[in-house]
């Protein structure tokens, strides 16, 4: 479980979300080649910062806030 959540990482996630309509956490982790746990943590922070939002269609997805 090494790896810290950095602003650079969060920025990468935001950029990735710019290219898709919605994504699951594990898809984000795969796309960025990072550990899922790290992706979960970064996404959690992004949500608290109100930069992304969750949507629920049977399972949890995230997307850019307001996109």
């Amino acid at each position: 479980m090494n790896g810290e959540v950095t602003e650079a990482l969060k920025q990468k996630i935001i950029e990735h979300l710019g290219t898709v309509s919605k994504a699951k956490n594990k898809e984000v982790a795969k796309a960025l080649g990072i550990e899922k746990h790290l992706a979960d943590k970064a996404i959690g922070e992004l949500s608290k910062e109100d930069r992304i939002e969750y949507i629920y269609l049977d399972t949890s997805y995230i997307k850019l806030k307001g996109k």
Binding site: K24, N25, G44, Y54, Y56, T59, S60
Partner: peptide, 9 residues
């Protein structure tokens, strides 16, 4: 908390 509140399994 995240795993409890956001179903993704």
């Amino acid at each position: 908390q995240d795993e409890i509140h956001r179903p993704r399994w």
